[in-house]
Computed example of a mutant assay.
Amino acid sequence: MSSSRDRIFATLRAGLKETVNDPARPKTVADRISGHPRNLVPQRAQIPHDEQVALFVAKVEALTVTVDRVDSAADVPAKIADYLAQHNLPTTLKVSPDPLLEALPWSDRPLLQVEYGRGRSEDLVSVTPAFAGIAETGTLMLHSSATTPTTLHFVPDHHLVVMRESQITGALEDAFARLREKLGSVDNWPRTVNFVTGPSRTADIEGVPVLGAHGPRRLHIVLVKDGAAQS
């Protein structure tokens, strides 16, 4: 007797008029992965890059995300220290072991206690990079890797993101195009690609908004000016 799983898949195949082990299916899937045709891209995000940066900042701030803009990466530790002081937080940070973050002059702020590694339940503040910022919706694109553990995106109450202006794209399709360019073959793709639009919130219970139900209750971005957009 077939299992419930087999019955479910059989029903789906019947609805799609597909057969088991159809020899055409692997080629169809391979062609779709290699070709990755673009969907319709909204015109509002197809603007000069400086306008994309302004749109991204406006979108994230409308989502209760706070933003600091700095002229140099050297200014980042000071802005993070200011954020901690503003919210009366301890000076301990769990930081992604990412080259951009490891190169920051943390020693300029000796009171900051920087620890690199994965997020744990006891971590209150994380600092991570982002792969891209999507101007159209004010969304961060994050992916897992040895230097960007996903736990830092979701476990601590305060998620601080350091990113360059050149990482901001117009639309979701543009961000995916950059990821394909960076990683190449699908075999090199990360286990997870996450999209974060504002801090975690839900209104599932009696329609009352609650922050931090499924992730950080606060999201803060330190945006570093670095010139023109990426190719």
Rank of each mutant, 00 (worst) to 15 (best):
S3H: 07
S3W: 05
R5I: 06
R5S: 01
D6M: 05
I8E: 04
L12F: 07
R13T: 06
E18W: 09
T19E: 09
V20K: 12
A24F: 08
P26T: 08
P26D: 06
K27A: 14
A30S: 11
A30T: 11
A30M: 13
R32Y: 00
S34I: 15
G35Q: 07
R38P: 02
L40N: 15
V41R: 15
V41S: 09
Q43T: 09
A45T: 02
Q52E: 00
Q52M: 04
F56T: 07
V57M: 05
V57L: 07
A58M: 10
K59W: 10
K59F: 13
K59M: 14
K59S: 12
L63D: 03
V65Y: 02
V67N: 08
D68P: 08
D68C: 04
R69C: 12
V70P: 13
A74C: 13
P77S: 06
P77Y: 00
A81F: 11
D82L: 09
Y83M: 03
A85E: 14
Q86A: 15
H87E: 09
N88S: 15
L89Q: 10
L89K: 11
T91D: 15
V95C: 09
P97W: 07
D98I: 05
D98H: 15
D98G: 04
P99E: 15
L100Y: 07
E102D: 11
L104E: 06
D108V: 01
R109S: 15
R109D: 11
G117T: 14
G117M: 14
G119Q: 11
S121K: 06
S121R: 08
E122W: 06
D123V: 12
D123G: 12
L124Q: 14
V125A: 11
S126I: 12
S126V: 12
V127Y: 01
T128K: 00
G133I: 02
E136N: 08
L142Q: 08
H143C: 13
H143I: 04
H143G: 05
H143P: 03
S145A: 15
S145P: 10
A146L: 15
T147N: 08
T147Y: 02
T148G: 04
T148A: 12
P149A: 10
L152N: 11
P156I: 11
H158E: 14
V161A: 05
V161F: 00
V162N: 03
V162Q: 03
M163H: 03
Q167V: 07
Q167F: 06
A175M: 04
A177N: 13
L179Y: 09
R180A: 04
K182V: 12
G184L: 08
V186H: 14
D187Y: 10
N188S: 13
N188L: 09
W189C: 03
T192K: 12
N194Y: 01
N194M: 05
T197H: 04
T197N: 03
P199C: 07
P199G: 03
R201K: 14
R201L: 12
P209Y: 13
L211D: 06
A213K: 11
P216H: 05
P216A: 09
R218L: 11
R218A: 13
R218N: 13
R218Y: 03
H220P: 12
I221R: 01
V222S: 01
V224T: 00
K225W: 00
D226P: 04
A228V: 08
A229D: 02
A229W: 02
S231Q: 14
